[in-house]
Design a protein around this nucleic acid. Structure first.
Lengths: 210, 210
DNA sequence: TAGTCTAAGATAGTGACGCTATCCAGAGCC
DNA sequence: GGCTCTGGATAGCGTCACTATCTTAGACTA
């Protein structure tokens, strides 16, 4: 398949495909001649995945690159690959990257209470959680992070369901794809449902009372 | 309070404050003289809120403006204000804004099944949900949107808890602030917890099995 | 009261990001 | 033989969220 066909069958412009190749998001086509290369179904598939992640999840190109690199490491387990993928997808918030002792301790306590004993002690996500807790404490929200125990079984059930959806009869690449898509697309799905639920509960509580 | 003091007590640069005033995110100070204005605690508070929304939620400046405008409309109920706020905060995904009949129907069915009968029939979030369902169907995820009934009670519980946290003994502005912060900051909190839970469940299922 | 400082307001510039457009030289097709 | 298309390189563009500079009037300081 030539680059123009790849472009047509994915809806991504030739210029953008070249850009993605340059950035290492997509491997160059198999070289047939000095000025001719061949692209295959893997390229179509990868390109479709990249577009979904960008269009739905607004994943930055740099994170996509890290994701691709994580996928290509054939030595690691699926779990380690997924761990790297999650690190890549973790949104960088502009809050202090090194949280204070107290909030970090709160974060660790939450993880412990949830029973997530498989989470690495040095997982960057723990600091991320601590940073968010810091903001919750500072910002006049009444929500008590410790009291957020309410969330834990619910979130646990959601995540367990999502991991359960992955089809382990497939190859590594497909499984990674499913996990990453799950992380991003189902994350948006979840947030969308939550906004709808907010509207419903907000109406029940506040409608007509000013 | 002068602009330099406002800057110091919020950590936002004078140039940025001026920019926010220009963009209508922040009201100009009370004019004392041709070249002198006075800023008060409301400005400090507003500015802190804006920074949290941007730093944690990456809310675009345009959305912040819509949010401010929603807050300032004194005629509407809290619920209507919140509805406008949610519309402003809804992330624009680059997926077809006008989904096909089928996915829209799926979306409506989900809302109905969840029992969210207070959601306006013309809520833009319904189309947003439909667009995400379209992507799920197209992208090789095994998750069946209809089968996502699993999610509904969980999401409902989360949203109900969050709306319940709002302190209705406060004034309109404070309540709006709590709802918007809840939407954004607790949304990040939720996603962070979910990522941790993913790591845990991914380890249980895949660790050591390649 | 002279001199310095700071304010508000206007306008222009910056840097990151994600493309997009142009150019080039060679190969393929008709 | 002329047109199209290719991969590769490089430069440009549009948006976003600031940031910096300039001007001038008023405020404070000695």
């Amino acid at each position: 398949m030539r680059i123009s066909e790849l472009s047509e069958s994915t809806g991504v412009s030739v210029a953008t495909i070249k850009y993605y190749v340059r950035e290492g998001l997509l491997s160059p086509g198999r070289k047939l001649a000095e000025r001719l290369a061949d692209y295959d179904d893997q390229h179509v598939r990868r390109l479709r995945l990249l577009r979904v992640l960008r269009d739905v999840g607004a994943v930055p190109v740099g994170a996509l690159k890290a994701l691709v690199e994580a996928t290509q490491d054939r030595r690691t387990t699926i779990h380690d690959m997924f761990g790297e993928a999650c690190d890549a997808l973790r949104v960088e918030t502009a809050v202090p990257a090194t949280p204070d002792e107290h909030t970090r301790e709160l974060a660790d306590r939450i993880v412990e209470r949830a029973g997530w004993d498989q989470v690495r002690p040095d997982a960057p996500e723990r600091d991320q959680l601590a940073a968010i807790i810091r903001v919750i404490l500072d910002s006049g929200l009444r929500t008590d992070p410790e009291g957020a125990a309410t969330y834990l079984p619910l979130v646990d059930a959601i995540a367990a369901y999502e991991i359960d959806q992955v089809d382990d009869s497939q190859d590594r690449e497909t499984m990674m794809e499913q996990m990453v898509l799950g992380q991003v697309v189902l994350g948006e799905f979840l947030l969308s449902l939550r906004r709808l639920a907010h509207e419903h509960h907000s109406a029940l509580r506040f409608d007509g009372r000013g």
